[in-house]
């Protein structure tokens, strides 16, 4: 199956067909989710209106983690099978995930001010998100520093896999170190503890963020394929001009 979709031409056609739908769905979901979450959903009896920050903060946190998982998996696929598309996916996922992590940190600070009385609290989950953000930065810095295209992809994939292995350990160590964040209330073994009036807009926002990430990654990957094709054509043109000049 990998090999079937690893063909850039086939991927490009598939992505081109999918993209209008993906972007359309993104707009639709945000058009429903944003007003529902930010205006029509009930205010919290404890946190009043500030609870609305959750509808951006929590999906951003999920997507930042999901994007890193995706980064690790596509790095693994690239490392084992050497499919270039997997590397393109990793390259596209990193900045998107970093932005989601950053968004999560900023909204966390904005939410922390009214809830905990401070812009930044060294709470376990916020701190893990900060470390995740640093992992993204390290990954992008390493890729940016290597000039050779093959080596860049290989080194990046190794670092992303190491990060994915270490991430649960970092998470555990930071939890061990301190915890004051409210415990997870949606993904639990005994079902969500969050009320349905909030769970619905939250789910739609999470879905909207997920589709947005998909659209962003697909668009970036297509751009990179076109970029690569352009480079190849330019090289061909140069060598042809050189050959003509030699005559």
């Amino acid at each position: 199956m990998w090999s079937y979709f690893a063909n850039p031409e086939r991927f490009d056609r598939l992505a081109a067909a999918m993209l209008p739908w993906t972007w359309g769905l993104t707009v639709l979901l945000f058009a429903i989710g944003l007003p529902w979450a930010l205006v029509f959903s009930p205010a919290d009896y404890q946190q009043s209106e500030t609870v609305r920050i959750m509808y951006v903060h929590v999906p951003a946190a999920w997507l930042a983690m999901a994007a890193y998982a995706g980064l690790g998996v596509s790095s693994f696929v690239y490392f084992i099978w050497r499919h270039n598309l997997a590397d393109l996916a990793a390259r596209a996922l990193a900045p998107a995930g970093a932005v989601f992590a950053f968004l999560c940190l900023v909204t966390g600070a904005l939410w922390g001010r009214p809830m905990w009385g401070a812009w930044w609290v060294w709470d376990a989950r916020l701190t893990s998100m900060l470390v995740l953000f640093l992992l993204y930065l390290g990954y992008m810095a390493l890729r940016g520093a290597i000039e050779d295209e093959k080596l860049r992809a290989r080194a990046g994939s190794i670092l992303a896999m190491a990060g994915l292995i270490n991430l649960p350990i970092i998470k555990f160590s930071v939890d061990w170190w301190n915890t004051l964040h409210q415990p997870a209330s949606v993904i639990r073994f005994d079902g969500p503890t969050i009320h349905a009036s909030k769970l619905w807009p939250l789910s739609i926002m999470a879905l909207a963020f997920t589709v947005l990430l998909t659209a962003l990654v697909l668009t970036t990957m297509r751009t990179m394929i076109v970029e690569r094709r352009l480079e190849r054509l330019e090289r061909q043109r140069e060598s042809r001009l050189e050959a003509e000049a030699a005559l």
């Binding site: 470390v131 640093l134 390290g138 390493l142 670092l159 990060g163 160590s173």
Partner: peptide
């Protein structure tokens, strides 16, 4: 990972520090 790159020292610190957190 960073061997032989320009400004490898800075890069190593940025890569290793988050992994050393535990």
């Amino acid at each position: 990972l960073a061997a032989g790159l320009k400004r490898a020292g800075l890069l190593i610190a940025l890569i290793a520090a988050p992994l050393q957190v535990p």
